[in-house]
Amino acid sequence: MIAVENLRKRFSGPSGVVQALDGVSLQVGEGEFVAVQGPSGCGKTTLLLIVGTLLHPTEGKVCVGGANPYELPLDARARFRAQTIGFVFQQFHLIPYLTVRENILAPQLAVSDPAALQRADDLLRRFQLADRARHTPDTLSTGERQRTALARAFLNRPKVLLADEPTGNLDADNAEIVLRGLADFARDGGAVLLVTHDARAAQYAHRIVRMKNGKVLPD
């Protein structure tokens, strides 16, 4: 489902060129849950953004859901992203003026689907947010916010779920809910790429990939 080969990414900054990824190759198959671990600045988030079709690699091949998204024009890539990939971030990135239900429905702005309303209600129940449906994010606990973000990532039934430190701000119970949600997604046939420092991820992930200085360390 996800295949990257010999991926390199360089950033030019005021302090010179930074090699964020240096020949990374990785595969995540259907139904597979892969956790990427490594110290800060090792290139985990860069890898995630490239796989998420948001950041063009300097070199290397990217294949998501059987297609190279970087061969598509911008708008087609955006549509591809909306249909294929779900994101979960450490900071939740909920839209502050929308209710929980509206935040979950936000991906529908990109891909209109009448069935999305029913799915949003199902997700509200699944992540124990039904009684918070009309609340705005500023009135939610951190756990509820992350569950909302997870539900939002599930709305368009993506093939791939990309999660960047989703448990970083959560207590144990909520972290458990999120990790179980990711595992359930993989069990249902999706591919999960989780970037995390959380040691609990090992209990749910099928595979741990370690990175350092922009490279994948050998097993």
Binding site: D75, R79, R81, F87, H93, R152, N156
Partner: peptide, 15 residues
């Protein structure tokens, strides 16, 4: 950030 997340969710430029 809101614009970033909307783009990540797949909103196109014209949207």
């Amino acid at each position: 950030v809101e614009i970033g997340i909307l783009r990540a969710l797949g909103l196109r430029s014209r949207q």
